[in-house]
Design a protein around this nucleic acid. Sequence first.
DNA 1: AAGGCCTACAACCGCATCCGT
DNA 2: GACGGATGCGGTTGTAGGCCT
Length: 186
Amino acid sequence: MRSLSSRGVAGGGKGAETGLKRGPWSVGEDELLREYIEREGEGGWRTLPKKAGLLRCGKSCRLRWMNYLRPSVKRGRISEDEEDLILRLHRLLGNRWSLIAGRIPGRTDNEIKNYWNTHLSRKLISQGIDPKTHQPFDPNPSINQNQSLINNPNPPIIHHNGDEDCCNDEESLSSFLNSLINDEML
DNA sequence: AAGGCCTACAACCGCATCCGT
DNA sequence: GACGGATGCGGTTGTAGGCCT
């Protein structure tokens, strides 16, 4: 974002109906949230705003912390290495942004999702590659679909909570993804 | 210089999933 | 097992600022 407060929609929608503030966060709100979490720790998002003295919903507080205020969040441009990693992980995992983010230190799911939508998907399209399948565009969609299956006949199915058919525990999934990162799968 | 268009990204929303009772 | 609240995820929106004509 060009500035910290680009989304000038404060006041509208459900937030206004419930007396909660919406839209961009002020410096003061950031400080309140940061101080509270440093003191009390993460979690309890539902009750956090009230305890911290914020007129925000818990979801909004969590998002702000996760994507912006957390000390581990890396700011700045995504490097070529990171971009390459995102491409490889996306080819395998699809739009599992949180899983992809989990393999890229300092980057958030929201950041990666945004980067994908604004940079990488367009880049792939310009190269004649379908960003959904990572296969070259084909005038005949059914053939394209089949080709996708031929290239990866048994794609890992990862459920919402991160479980996977071929990796039924967290450790297996982790080593699986590590092998991907290390190019062993490709 | 002005106005329209485009890009980037923070933030919101709805739904899925988790977890305690 | 059913239920309800809390949390997490992914899709989408809205706007500031840059670019183009």
